[in-house]
């Protein structure tokens, strides 16, 4: 029994010592890289790739762990409650703004510190190639004239695609039938004519656009995308919206600045590494590494935009426990 005590005491001692040295020699043990998606998905593979590249940068293993569920709620709660020592980082996404504002978790994005962004993609408004509308305005005008007839498919109430769809239609005063459908079905529904339009992620429909089966009428982000440069942005079409689907890193609030800076450099270098950038290119995701400052400003802007859209759509904090 005594022996165990010694061992426990010794390890405790070792632990406190190492904790004290954290600033000097961070990192000195492996880092937990928490992914809010299930193992094997696209976002997971990218997370694993960047984790691998970051281990090279930091000289200590960055170990990916999946904690999917609740639109990212489980991961964010876990990382927010972890020790602010930089050994637990979250692979974040736009869900950090949606899941918080819809009220899945009792905190907002400012409850964490954010290291930066790695990649982003816009949210397009897609219709079939043979559709009678060639611009978003034509679609919205018809929708306004005949409320509750045109159908728009999106990913699920409260998701980023839902917000984009709601924002685009409400800002144009149109009342469509909103169909919540999962990803591949959404595109199939356009092809089969079951829905008139869909709000989707960017890169998969892009393939179908190139194959001449669909066309994009608008993008949700502020600037045009190089992969589809003819598609106008929502802002150009006179709508006040500027958000895209991003992926980046977050840590617990109160993590020392030295550690955050180190993570930031490692992340940006990893994002620009060959293995990672070629993968992004393949997926047509825009690689847009961004540091703490820039990302913080972006989050603030996007968050305000999302809150106002959610309020307009009656989604703000609807899931919060009263």
């Amino acid at each position: 029994m005594k022996k165990i005590h010694y061992i426990l005491f010794g390890s405790l001692l070792a632990f406190t010592v190492s904790a004290n040295q954290a600033h000097a020699e961070w990192p000195e043990k492996s880092i937990e890289f928490v992914i809010p998606f299930g193992a094997g998905g696209g976002a997971d593979i990218e997370g694993r790739l960047i984790a691998k590249a970051m281990s090279k940068e930091l000289g200590k293993p960055v170990v990916p762990i999946n904690k999917p569920g609740g639109g990212g709620a489980i991961t964010y709660t876990y990382v927010k409650n972890s020790k602010p020592d930089g050994y637990t980082i979250a692979w974040n996404s736009t869900s950090i703004l949606t899941t918080t504002n819809i009220g899945n978790v009792p905190f907002d994005y400012t409850a964490m510190d954010h290291i930066g962004q790695v990649a982003q993609q816009p949210v397009p408004f897609v219709v079939s190639k043979n559709a009678r509308w060639n611009t978003l305005k034509e679609f919205m005008d018809e929708c306004k004239a005949k409320p509750n007839t045109l159908k728009i498919a999106f990913a699920g109430f409260g998701s980023a695609t839902h917000l984009a769809g709601v924002a685009m239609s409400q800002m144009n005063g149109c009342k469509p039938i909103m169909l919540p459908v999962k990803a591949p079905d959404r595109r199939k529904m356009i092809l089969s004519g079951e829905t008139d339009a869909a709000v989707d992620i960017f890169f998969v429909p892009l393939k179908l656009v190139k194959a001449g089966k669909m066309k994009m009428l608008a993008l949700s982000s502020g600037v045009r995308n190089a992969a589809a440069s003819t598609v106008p942005t929502a802002r150009e079409l006179g709508m006040d919206m500027d958000f895209d689907l991003f992926r980046g890193l977050s840590v617990a609030k109160g993590t020392p600045k030295a550690i955050k800076d180190k993570l930031e450099t490692a992340m940006i270098n990893a994002a620009n590494s060959k293995a990672f950038s070629s993968r992004m290119k393949k997926l047509k995701l825009t690689l847009a590494p961004m540091g703490q400052k820039e990302f913080g400003a972006k989050l603030q802007k996007a968050n305000a935009n999302i809150v106002s859209i959610m309020k307009m759509a009656g989604l703000y904090q609807v899931k919060a426990k009263k």
């Binding site: 299930g38 193992a39 094997g40 998905g41 696209g42 976002a43 593979i45 999962k182 990803a183 591949p184 079905d185 595109r187 199939k188 092809l191 998969v204 393939k207 179908l208 194959a211 089966k213």
Partner: peptide, 13 residues
């Protein structure tokens, strides 16, 4: 889990 949903679109996409 790899983000590929089997179904009619698998052949197209």
């Amino acid at each position: 889990i790899h983000g590929l949903a089997p179904g009619p679109l698998l052949f197209m996409e």
